[in-house]
Design a binder for these strands. Structure first.
Lengths: 157, 157
DNA sequence: TGTTAGTCCGACCTTATTGATCGGAGATCA
DNA sequence: TGATCTCCGATCAATAAGGTCGGACTAACA
C-alpha cells in the first residue's frame, strides 16, 4: 500500500545521478545523457527519456540538445525537494480522492463522511516529511531526514 | 500520488461506523449489518461486503451469522491502528518495490541503487505515523495524530 | 554547410490493478 | 422449515501503469 510508481523511482535515481555529476556544488557541472543513466541502473531507455522530459518540463532539470547534450540540474540539490520530484511525476499528493475537491464537487460519501478530516491530517504530515527532505539529503552516505513537527524544532536522525 | 484505494476508504468508514455503534466503550455493542453501512455512505453493497469479510478474516471485526447478524469490533477502538486497517486491505506498507525483498531476490537496479536507503527511512516515518493513530483517534471531534520521532517524545498536535 | 548523434514530443499498445457484480453455499433464529 | 443474513469464489469492466514506436527538431563537428 501507498506505493510510489516505477516512474517516480526512476526519476529519483536519475536525479540523484545527475546531481552526483555536479560534484562540489559547482553549477553547471557535467552534462549527463539519458543512455548513461539507463545503462547504469537498468532502466528501459525510452521510459526513462519520458520521465526526464517530464522533469525538464517541470523545471527541475535543464535539457541540452544535440551531440554531447543531456541533462543538468536546474537548481542546486538542496533546493530540490523529494515532494517536488514525486509531484512532477505522479501529480499532487492526495491519499484520498476528496483531497483536492474544489467547492461544489463532492464525493458520493461526503455528506456523512467521517474520515475526511483525520485523513487530511495524515496527509499533511506526509507532505511535511517529503517537503523537508531534499535531493541533497539523498546524496552520499550522510544522514538525513528530519521529522518536522508543526510546532517547530526538527529532530535530527 | 500515494493514494489509498477506495476499498481502504470504505474500510475506514465502515469501521468508524461500527465503532460508533459501540458507544461508551462497551463491549460488545450493537451489531451492525452490511446493508446499513452501505446505505448510510452510498457504498456498493457487494463491494463493502467483501471489504468487511477481509477485515473479519484479519480479526479486526467479528461476524455474526443469521438474521440480526452483522459485525462488531473484535477489539476496542483504541487498540485498532490505522496501519492495521490499511494493511488488512492493501497489504503491507511499501512505498518502493524493494521494501520487502527477501535475501536473494533483488530488483534490477539493486546493484547501483542509490535511493533505497533514504526511501526506507521515509517509509519508516509514515509507518510510525499510521501505527500511532488508532480508530479511537478518528472518532468524535477530538484532536489526534502524534508524530513520533525515533528518538522518542511524541509531539501533540 | 551538411551530416549525424542526440534530445524532444506525442501517440500508441500491453498488462496489472482496482472497482464492481453475480450466484450459490452455509448458518442462524423465529 | 423458511426467511434472512453472512460467507466465499468466480467473473467482468474500467482505469492506470509500464513500456514501445516513429518522426521532428537541434546543435556540435568534420
Amino acid at each position: 500500500m501507498l506505493k510510489i510508481s516505477k516512474k517516480a523511482d526512476y526519476a529519483l535515481m536519475a536525479l540523484q545521478h545527475i546531481a552526483a555529476a555536479q560534484f562540489g556544488d559547482m553549477m553547471p557541472g557535467r552534462v549527463v545523457n539519458t543512455k548513461e543513466i539507463a545503462e547504469e541502473y537498468n532502466i528501459p531507455l525510452e521510459l526513462l527519456a519520458k520521465v526526464l522530459q517530464t522533469l525538464a518540463k517541470n523545471a527541475l532539470i535543464e535539457s541540452h540538445n544535440g551531440p554531447k547534450g543531456g541533462y543538468v540540474l536546474a537548481r542546486r540539490a538542496h533546493q530540490i525537494t523529494i515532494a517536488q520530484i514525486l509531484e512532477s511525476i505522479e501529480g499532487p499528493l492526495g491519499i484520498t480522492d476528496c483531497s483536492h475537491e474544489k467547492d461544489g464537487e463532492f464525493c458520493m460519501q461526503r455528506e456523512h463522511c467521517n474520515i475526511r478530516t483525520p485523513l487530511l491530517k495524515v496527509q499533511d504530515s506526509i507532505a511535511q516529511l517529503l517537503n523537508n527532505m531534499t535531493l541533497q539529503d539523498m546524496m552520499g552516505g550522510t544522514p538525513l531526514i528530519t521529522i518536522q513537527s508543526p510546532t517547530a524544532q526538527g529532530v535530527e536522525r
